[in-house]
């Protein structure tokens, strides 16, 4: 411990040049201000009436009011938006984790000549951008009558989560010793039994990582719902929020209230699961 402190003091004194230090502090402070100030401005603007916003754009509100919130909630139909976002996020996350663990188990523990090809096809998908496929996906949804249905949104969400899911699950299950599976086989257990009662309970860490990656990916996803759904009843938060506070919005107070409502859940999620999220993000950044 003593040496560590000694080394650290030496770094500060001899190597970290004052000019460099000023530069680094300036940079982190700029980033901090640029993050906190817009959020602060967003919040205080949501407490103003439209008339006040025109006169007092950046100052503290004269008569802070929370009235914009219920109005924005009702007009933008936040009940429906939240329900849909929760549904798509939860359903796709459960399915991605289940399918990835199943296939990952097969790839890692059952010998087959098909594995290199199948597993490889998923690894390529890590780099494929769904954005580049929006038009074919739309055309497919229309011609299979899945346009404007829950299933039509859910299937792409699951497919989109599979590549990284398969990659992480296969790696993880590979690290479980083969002898665990082999001894269960000798005892006469079927592969499904081994999966359900031995492997699945051991995979909690990778399941948590996947859940974090998938929840933040799907909750914020905009493009797919935007092109695959036109009915109000199926919209999710990002799509509903853009529709309500988009370029045509004329009431700034309400617009900012809607943006704040959209922002809060993810910020809370982040502050609560900060450690797991940072771990998940770095685990998800695998080589293609």
């Amino acid at each position: 411990m003593k040496t560590a402190t000694a080394t650290r003091t030496r770094i500060r004194k001899t190597d970290f040049h004052p000019v460099l230090r000023v530069f680094v502090y300036t940079m982190v402070l700029i980033f901090t201000v640029l993050t906190l100030y817009p959020l602060y401005w967003l919040f205080i603007s949501s407490l103003k009436t439209n008339t006040e916003f025109q006169l007092n754009m950046t100052g503290w509100p004269w008569n802070p009011t929370l009235n914009n919130y219920p109005t924005a909630w009702r007009l933008a139909q936040f009940d429906t938006l939240f329900l849909n976002s929760v549904f798509f996020t939860v359903a796709s996350t459960i399915l991605v984790i289940l399918f990835s663990l199943m296939a990952g188990f097969a790839f890692a523990k059952i010998r087959s000549k098909a594995t290199p090809f199948l597993h490889g096809s998923f690894v390529i998908g890590i780099l494929l951008t769904l954005q580049s496929l929006m038009v074919p996906l739309f055309l497919m949804a229309v011609s299979t009558n899945l346009y404007n249905t829950r299933l039509g949104v859910l299937i792409p969400y699951v497919g989109m989560g599979m590549p990284i899911g398969i990659y992480l699950c296969t790696e993880f299950i590979r690290s479980i010793p083969d002898s665990v599976v082999e001894s269960a086989r000798i005892d006469g257990a079927s592969y499904f039994r081994i999966f359900a009662s031995i492997i699945a309970p051991m995979t909690k860490p990778v399941a948590v990582t996947l859940a974090i990656l998938n929840v933040s990916g799907v909750w914020n996803e905009f493009m797919l719902v935007n092109i695959l759904v036109s009915s109000d009843a199926l919209r999710t938060l990002p799509v509903g929020i853009l529709k309500f506070s988009g370029p045509l919005a004329s009431d700034h107070g309400r617009q900012f209230a809607a943006l704040t409502i959209g922002l809060v859940p993810m910020v809370i999620f982040y502050l609560v699961f900060r450690k797991q999220i940072t771990k998940g993000v770095s685990a998800g950044a695998v080589k293609g």
């Binding site: 059952i110 098909a114 496929l133 074919p136 497919m140 299937i155 599979m162 592969y191």
Partner: peptide
Amino acid sequence: RAYLLLVLPGVLVYWAVMAFPT
């Protein structure tokens, strides 16, 4: 049989939304 059934759901969904559209 086990291999096929374990791999199938993931492969089907993934191929349907990422490989096929390409």
